[in-house]
Simulated assay, not measured.
Amino acid sequence: MKYLILMHIDPAVLESLTEEQQQQIGEGHGQFMATTKENGEFISTQALGDPSTSKVVRSNGGGPEVTDGPFVEAKEFMGGFYLLDVEDEARIVELAKLIPDASIPGLAVEIRPVVFSDLGDG
């Protein structure tokens, strides 16, 4: 079963981390990717740009309108994701706990099952 692990970022928390803590996060993500690749569970991962660079397209009543910034005002934003294919929910929870962000107060990971997928394979 495919699951998406969303990484929620609070910029203030990231700014308060020491250089050592930042290095531990990077190394932890490297280990997470290595483990899930080795187990055949890894599909992909993407890190996303800061929300200040985003655009939102939504209806203004007469058609689509483009605005700057995130959809909602919030201190947290989605910083990236992992797409994994695992045996069951218990396994994805086990893996999510390995992501270093899950151990840092103010950061979080969210697990959501994939209910539809089209990878564009032809």
Rank of each mutant, 00 (worst) to 15 (best):
M1R: 15
M1Q: 12
M1E: 14
M1H: 13
M1P: 15
K2C: 09
Y3G: 10
L4F: 08
I5H: 02
M7W: 05
M7G: 13
H8F: 13
H8P: 05
H8D: 12
P11V: 08
A12C: 01
A12V: 00
L14H: 01
L14F: 06
L14V: 02
E15Y: 00
S16N: 00
S16C: 00
S16M: 00
L17H: 00
E19I: 02
E20H: 05
Q21L: 03
Q21W: 01
Q23V: 13
Q24M: 11
I25Q: 08
G26Q: 14
E27K: 14
E27I: 10
E27T: 10
G28R: 02
H29S: 02
G30S: 13
G30E: 07
F32I: 05
F32E: 00
F32V: 12
F32C: 02
M33I: 14
M33D: 12
M33N: 11
A34S: 15
A34Q: 11
A34E: 09
T35Q: 12
K37G: 04
E38I: 07
E38Q: 12
E38R: 05
N39H: 09
N39I: 07
G40M: 10
G40E: 09
G40T: 12
F42H: 08
F42D: 14
S44Y: 15
Q46C: 14
A47L: 11
A47K: 07
G49Q: 13
G49V: 11
G49P: 11
G49R: 09
D50E: 13
D50R: 09
P51Y: 05
S52R: 07
S52Q: 11
S54L: 01
V56H: 12
V56F: 07
V56W: 04
R58E: 14
R58F: 03
R58L: 14
R58C: 08
S59Q: 06
N60M: 02
G61T: 04
G61Q: 03
P64G: 07
E65C: 10
V66R: 13
V66W: 09
T67N: 01
D68T: 07
P70K: 06
P70A: 08
P70G: 04
V72T: 10
V72P: 07
A74V: 15
E76S: 07
E76I: 05
M78H: 08
M78C: 13
G79Q: 03
G80S: 14
F81S: 02
F81R: 04
Y82C: 02
L83K: 03
V86A: 01
V86P: 01
V86M: 02
V86E: 03
E87W: 05
E87F: 09
D88M: 05
D88I: 02
A90D: 15
R91S: 09
I92N: 02
V93R: 10
V93A: 10
E94Y: 06
E94P: 04
L98T: 11
I99D: 05
P100I: 14
P100M: 10
D101G: 06
A102R: 10
A102F: 04
S103T: 11
I104S: 02
I104M: 03
P105C: 04
L107S: 01
L107M: 12
A108L: 01
V109H: 08
V109F: 10
R112W: 03
R112M: 07
V114K: 07
V114M: 06
V115Q: 08
F116I: 09
S117M: 15
S117V: 09
S117A: 15
D118L: 14
D118A: 08
D118Y: 15
L119A: 13
L119K: 15
G120S: 13
G120Y: 06
D121A: 06
